[in-house]
C-alpha cells in the first residue's frame, strides 16, 4: 500500500479526466478512462470522485490534476 491519502475537492473538478488518463496509463499501459482506479462522475452540475478497491493510493491522479481537485497527503505511518 503506497503512502498517500488522496483528498478530493469535488467543487474544483472540471471533468478533464487527466486523473483517469494518468492512472490507467500507469497501471494498464494505455490511456483508458474506464480502466482507471479513480472515477469521476458528473450529474447535472454536481461531481463525485470515487476510488475503486484496486486503488493503492499512489497519488499519480493528484499529480496530474491541474485544478486542485485532488491533493495527496503523505500518511504519517509511512514517514
Amino acid at each position: 500500500m503506497a503512502g498517500y491519502d488522496i483528498i478530493t475537492l469535488e467543487e474544483n473538478c472540471t471533468g478533464c479526466l487527466r486523473c483517469q488518463l494518468a492512472c490507467s496509463y500507469l497501471y494498464t499501459g494505455l490511456f483508458n478512462p474506464s480502466a482507471a482506479r479513480i472515477q469521476v462522475r458528473f450529474s447535472g452540475t454536481g461531481c463525485a470522485i470515487d476510488f475503486t478497491d484496486e486503488c493503492n493510493h499512489c497519488g499519480v491522479c493528484a499529480d496530474s490534476c491541474f485544478y486542485d481537485a485532488l491533493k495527496k497527503v503523505k500518511r504519517e505511518d509511512d514517514e
Partner: peptide
C-alpha cells in the same frame, strides 16, 4: 458561476456551467 468544465485532458477548461 457554478462550475468550470474542461474537455478531456485540458488544463484551461474554458467551458462554463452557470446558474
Amino acid at each position: 458561476k457554478k462550475r468550470r468544465l474542461a474537455c478531456i485532458s485540458c488544463p484551461v477548461g474554458c467551458k462554463d456551467v452557470v446558474e
